[in-house]
Design a protein around this nucleic acid. Structure first.
Lengths: 116, 116
DNA sequence: CAGTATCCAGTTGGATACTG
DNA sequence: CAGTATCCAACTGGATACTG
């Protein structure tokens, strides 16, 4: 992933955080899981464009980093549910400031309506 | 850059913000410029490992996105100073939450000392 | 000094077929 | 259903030489 190995990382935790959310679809996955737990196939549909290989890979990374929990139900047909860990929810919270900044300055959301 | 073109972007400004800070050295550059304006050569030294080509490219992108200001002084030898715009400072502010999360959970900073 | 121009290499991500 | 295994294409970033 492109954001891995950021040498300037020492001074703060930003680089560390970036490496965790680095991956083309991770923030989308985080966003979907914020609402409720999802199965693999659901995520695949909710995150349009992602391939099975990459979705699986990024889910594993998020799991390894302690952001998502993977619950396997031993049934037929197989069922696996992904959900955010408390750490994952905290991460989403930290991401909110960034999202607010992006929405405010980048998405130029139709200009705030004049309060009358 | 790897974070560009995030289809799940619609729901919030996170993806938009990510695309702005996407690039292996951008957060390091932002960090250095937060302190004070810097010249090209200074940044090259302050951000160890970055090549001239990539530093120039990422500075141009940050400039295009309105994050950094590029001031050219017509002298000999040439001098160019990069500084953060107000928008850039705001971005750094938004990044702080992420940095705090990363520092707290990822850098495992020697464990918070027991308050006695 | 502050870049630009080339060429090259590593890595991420895409498409598809196959498996438990 | 929930992946894994392959092969492949695109892109970012690295090293270096050259220029205004």
């Amino acid at each position: 992933m492109a954001l891995t190995q950021r040498p300037g990382a020492d001074h703060c935790g930003i680089a560390a955080a970036m490496s965790v959310i680095d991956g083309k679809w991770k923030v989308s996955v985080l966003w979907e899981l914020e609402q409720c737990p999802r199965r693999f196939g659901e995520l695949r549909r909710l995150v349009p464009g992602v391939s099975e290989k990459v979705l699986a890979a990024q889910l594993r990374e998020l799991e390894t980093d302690g952001i998502v929990h993977r619950e396997v139900y031993e049934e037929v047909p197989p069922r696996v549910e992904y959900s955010l860990t408390p750490l994952g929810h905290e991460l989403n919270g930290a991401l909110e400031a960034l999202g607010a900044w992006g929405t405010k300055h980048l998405l130029t959301d139709a200009a705030q309506p004049v309060p009358m």
